[in-house]
Amino acid sequence: MNKPVENNILEVRDLEVKFFSDEGTVNAANGVNFKVPAGKSIGIVGESGCGKTVTAYSVLQLLPSTGKITNGTIKYQANDGNVIDLTNLKSESRAMRRIRGGEISMIFQEPMTSFSPVHTICNQISEAIMLHQHLSKQKARLRAIEMLELVGIPNAKRRVDEYPFQFSGGMRQRAMIAMALACNPKILIADEPTTALDVTTQAQVLKLIQGIQDELNLSMILITHDLGVIAQMVDHVYIMYLGKVVESGSVYDIFDRAKHPYTRDLIQSIPKLHGARGERVTSIAGTVPSTYKLPKGCAFHARCSDMFGNICRTETPLPIEVGSDHYVSCFLHSREEGKNNARDAR
């Protein structure tokens, strides 16, 4: 657990994010822990509403005004080698803005709405380049064309002056990737980058991201609800449920040796190509509970098929190391230990 921070370009600890509204307080993240080793990619997986996007937005301090980081640290190893806690930076401060887009950049789920419809692609890409790399307008434009060529947009010289509505969905997502990478960031956060695309385009875009990541030695956080995507793309996986990481491990740990009932259910719910005829895809019973009022005990207990006793309802399980760098938060694997830990924690 106490590995030196130098290996990790980003380390998030005990991140808590709350949204305050008239209806009550939403606990969007309740102590999220993960780390991104330099040059590696990690995946964050979970159902809708489990706090994946909120976690990503917190890193860049992009939360809407109703959302606040209430606890935790986000340690980032900046270009100059210093380690900065991003939670200490003001959201609109100069330092934070320099990191945004310049050192950590992000691609979003909806390529349709992520571009302004009334500005040209060139305008929107070169804007970031001029801002962070202080290039002239003409040079920024050349760089934008270069980036569009890199992401495989044909006829980039001409198309750079078109508007986003003249691009197809897949093309737009490519342009989005070009925009994100234009300033040579250290970390790329990809928030469901392929969810809104059709399957063939999805595969192309994923391949593109992977190729670029290898080529540029990027660190990447891939956020998705699709375990299938994760398997081909990342080194280390974090499974999130209700604003918490419930299990983390290498891709092999997660797919072959999943310990948490929720992870197992998620894997079960992937349709299999070679399954027996008549075999049915299972789904996880129930839906994600409301984040207004978190359930007591283990957050998953109401939907858990392996719930074994009262402890699941009353105590919160803590992460237990069950293998090399493979952690799981479940009493199934630590009946005694979990109880003790829970008691100690109070």
Partner: peptide, 30 residues
């Protein structure tokens, strides 16, 4: 079709879970 098995399997929630679900859902939310 894949749905050749007993349709009741679809409701593969055991009784305890059902009871829990009902108990947990907040009234106002319901």
């Amino acid at each position: 079709m894949f749905f050749t098995q007993n349709p009741e399997d679809n409701l593969a929630i055991n009784d305890r879970q059902k009871e829990l679900l009902e108990e947990e859902v907040d009234e106002t939310e319901e």
